[in-house]
């Protein structure tokens, strides 16, 4: 019976460890995801605008540059809603975000009521969250950053990765196809550096508008990990922009998470104080 006691204690420990690793996990997906995804997938940064080279022999890189040109802006302000398909119910979270380059972003949650007023600031590789309910500014620090964000496959760290795709990946056009009724070029991106989350990616890019319509992320082994579908491409301030994105973890069962931009503005005047900790309160 003694070793069974020990076993029981060990089991407590184990359940405890599990509880710890559950911290950032929920079956439902995440609030933060919207911000993260929009900053990771659709770089808001002022990327290189120089490549106006030959279009005939389109290299992967030049296509990515064009995507960058199309999507990027000095800054952007947007409102979005995120629909999280839970096992039980769906829920919608709306937020307003300001971002400038890749290094600064600020979001405020508008609904649901419980989360309204929660603000998040990402600044130079650091992340703070302010919550009116506790009236506290909490910094997500150290190894917490490496944990995945609420059951998603992105960690806080991913969210902090502000490098350009063209800096990280070698890309080449592998084939052409049609997707959502549009001609697309399929790009294969292979990491050039070692410290990236995904070793290989595949992007389906509208051959005319240079908007990504689908993106797949692969593990080093070639295993498909997740897929993003981008839809509802609209012309906004002279650029083509996908307003809806559906994100799905391919290893897990479930319907994924849907993001929708409800309002978006590029190249606005954003007061500098937005991107300071003072604006959290």
């Amino acid at each position: 019976m003694f070793n069974k006691n020990i076993e029981t204690i060990k089991r407590f420990q184990n359940s405890h460890l599990k509880a710890k690793s559950r911290i950032m996990f929920s079956h439902n997906g995440a609030l933060m995801l919207a911000v993260i995804l929009f900053s990771v997938i659709l770089p808001g940064g002022s990327h290189a605008r120089s490549a106006r080279g030959e279009q005939t022999q389109q290299s992967g890189e030049s296509i990515l540059r064009k995507v960058d040109q199309n999507l990027s802006s000095k800054n952007r302000i947007f409102e979005s809603s995120m629909i999280i398909h839970g096992r039980r119910s769906d829920r919608t979270v709306t937020s307003r975000s300001w971002s400038e380059g890749d290094k600064k972003s600020f979001s405020e949650y508008l609904s649901p009521a419980a989360e309204a007023g929660t603000k998040m600031l990402k600044l130079e590789g650091q992340l703070w969250i302010y919550t009116p309910s506790a009236d506290r500014t909490i910094q997500i620090s150290g190894h917490m950053l490496r944990q995945s964000v609420m059951g998603s496959d992105l960690s806080y760290e991913d969210m902090m990765d502000d490098r350009k795709l063209t800096d990280i990946y070698d890309s080449r056009v592998v084939s052409k196809d049609t997707l959502q009724g549009r001609d697309v070029l399929i790009l294969e991106l292979t990491a050039r550096v070692t410290d990236v989350a995904y070793h290989r990616q595949k992007m389906w890019i509208d051959a005319e508008r240079f908007v990504p319509l689908r993106q797949e992320m692969y593990a080093k082994s070639g295993q498909l990990l997740k897929r993003m579908e981008l839809k509802d491409v609209e012309r906004i301030q002279g650029r083509w922009f996908p307003k809806t994105m559906i994100y799905k973890d391919m290893l897990k069962e479930g319907k994924g998470t849907e993001f929708r931009m409800t309002k978006i503005q590029f190249d606005q005047q954003i007061p500098a104080h937005i991107f300071t900790k003072a604006s959290l309160r």
Binding site: L31, I84, R91
Partner: peptide, 23 residues
Amino acid sequence: MEGGFSFTNFIVAGTVRFGSAGL
């Protein structure tokens, strides 16, 4: 429960020892 953030302040009334290092 729905997957949103939860921030709640608590006051530490006391500390306990559980006798299990993990806990």
